[in-house]
């Protein structure tokens, strides 16, 4: 995409649940074509930030622009992968049906999904290595497989911006590899990917930009510039001691070289 215009521009965003602020005055620019991780402690407002970008929660102040326009006008450009526990996995629906749902937005009212939508869904399932599970009921999948189905649903949306809430949380090694491969594929084709992430050890390996969040935005930008002991301490407060003590080398920016060639 045009690099001049940021994919997502968050300005002065404050979000409160019942006047209890969850996000304070966030200014965040996410350039087009980057792979950005959002990190922060529990209750830092990571999921809320995603939901605010998607218009799922109404901000008390500030706004979010997607390629220069409010989200409501740019809906088709954005795909969302929610946390796995957000749906009822005993729902009577097959893997293929869930992925086809990703096309509903493009279909609009009244039109039914047909052969074309099912083929697109099967393609997306093949990309995440789940084509053999198309007719399974979704509750019969493992956690990692469920996550890959959600990812496939986002892929069929054929969006410009992908927002993913903890896609790597508690998944198996195959799923983690598949998801990472797809994240890099997406970026290679110029898409913008924003991922809520929980594992500090892998941040510099997986992402090229990072936003550190703890109700307020502590820092954001290229991993090499902003991901360091000072910003981590500001984000995690007292919890950082053991992080530094355990593996100080990993929080240094140098592993980023590995990403650039992947």
């Amino acid at each position: 995409m045009k690099t001049e215009q940021p994919a997502i521009q968050v300005t002065d965003l404050t979000v409160a649940y019942r006047d209890k602020p969850v996000l304070w005055d966030i200014d965040l620019t996410i350039p087009g074509g980057v792979l950005m991780g959002i990190i922060g402690p529990n209750g830092a407002g990571k999921t809320t930030l995603m939901k605010a970008i998607l218009g799922l929660v109404r901000p008390s102040a500030g706004q979010v622009l997607v390629y220069g326009k409010p989200y409501a006008q740019q809906r088709r450009l954005v795909a969302y992968v929610p946390q796995r526990n957000s749906v009822d996995w005993d729902f009577p629906t097959s893997v293929l049906d869930v992925v086809v749902m990703g096309r509903y937005g493009a279909l609009g009212w009244f039109r039914r999904p047909g052969k074309r939508e099912r083929e697109q869904a099967l393609d997306a399932l093949a990309r995440v290595g789940m084509q053999d599970f198309a007719s399974r009921q979704i509750g019969q999948l493992s956690g990692g497989q469920q996550q890959r189905v959600f990812l496939a649903r986002a892929l069929v949306q054929d969006a410009q911006v992908y927002l993913m809430d903890e896609p790597l949380q508690g998944v198996d090694a195959t799923t983690e590899r598949t998801i990472l491969r797809i994240l890099h594929d997406l970026r290679a084709t110029g898409k913008t990917v924003v991922v809520v992430h929980h594992d500090l050890q892998t941040v510099s390996e997986y992402f090229d930009q990072v936003a550190l969040l703890n109700v307020r935005l502590v820092a954001s930008g290229p991993v090499a510039e902003v991901f360091n002991a000072a910003t981590l301490r500001a984000t995690y407060g007292g919890q950082i001691a053991f992080l530094e003590g355990r593996d100080p080398g990993r929080s240094a920016p140098e592993p980023r070289a590995g990403i650039a060639v992947s």
Partner: peptide, 13 residues
């Protein structure tokens, strides 16, 4: 009260 707080935080930032 909350609007004033938001304004103050914004100015501080």
């Amino acid at each position: 009260e909350f609007a004033q707080a938001m304004l103050a935080v914004h100015l501080l930032h």
